[in-house]
Design a protein around this nucleic acid. Structure first.
Lengths: 141, 141
DNA sequence: TGACAAACGCAACTCAGTTGCGTTACGATG
DNA sequence: CATCGTAACGCAACTGAGTTGCGTTTGTCA
């Protein structure tokens, strides 16, 4: 949790207070390197911290996203998942059996060139992309 | 709708009857080349055809998916989208402003190699992937 | 034409996320 | 240290996508 300090200053800049809930919530993100759902976070907050309302969690996630501390991903189901934005750009391997998620780093140069070329034909300006892989993890295949 | 005939034989093989609703629903997919949500389909069915219940639409979509006539995609929101599986493998450009969706074809050779290499390290067996691009379309930028 | 299974409609439900509103508490200022 | 404004909070009620159970209707085949 050595990066917490700089996060706390980011919060200050945005006039966000350092409440117990917020501190605990940010702490949780440092304990996991794969994306978490609102439900995951709510459960973990209530277990290790104290009872927190789901509305608070959703509002907090929205705020942290807005100031760029966390980012969101979709992993095939209808939930939204959240992870620290500071981590290096990566993609996800999602196991269809046990639902475990792993991160992978890809050399995307070729993909980006190709995507740029294809999108340019349609006059489309790409701002971001989502790329996830679904299959069977080490334990499940 | 020239491909309808072969679809009808696929239905027969799977003991699926040729009901008015089913025929109309399949017809709708031939009228659109970009993915449709259940709500889109329900609306269009009720407009051009007749009142259909949403449960029927969801069950129908599930059946057509099971026998491989349609496939599903996620486009960033929490809805599921459906499109004809027979179409060539492609990806989507999603406009963040007007929400319009366009298809693009990509040469994925390099991406596939790279993904295979990265996944192999984790002993992960990739079965499918999702790759969508988000940005601004021709009209919106 | 009758019978049987597939298909259907309806109502009630789940699950993720949102909204309105009244209350609590952080932290800046005096 | 007291106070005051606003950020943060909890609660209850809501929305929107999708699901389930069950009783009724309708294709299809003998």
């Amino acid at each position: 949790m050595e990066h917490s300090e700089e996060i706390f200053t980011i919060l200050k800049v945005h006039h966000l207070r350092l409440t117990k809930t917020r501190k605990a919530l940010i702490g949780i993100f440092f304990l996991h390197e794969t994306p978490l759902s609102a439900r995951d976070i709510l459960r973990e907050l209530c277990e290790v911290h104290r009872a927190v309302n789901k509305t608070t969690v959703y509002r907090e996630l929205e705020r942290l996203q807005k100031i760029g501390i966390i980012g969101t991903v979709r992993l095939g189901d209808r939930k939204q998942y959240y992870e620290l934005a500071a981590r290096e750009h990566h993609h996800h391997l999602v196991c269809l059996k046990c639902e475990k998620v792993e991160n992978i780093m890809l050399d995307e140069k070729k993909l980006k060139e190709e995507a740029k070329r294809a999108a340019a034909v349609k006059n489309f300006l790409t701002l971001r992309h989502s790329l996830e892989f679904f299959g069977l993890c080490k334990m499940c295949n």
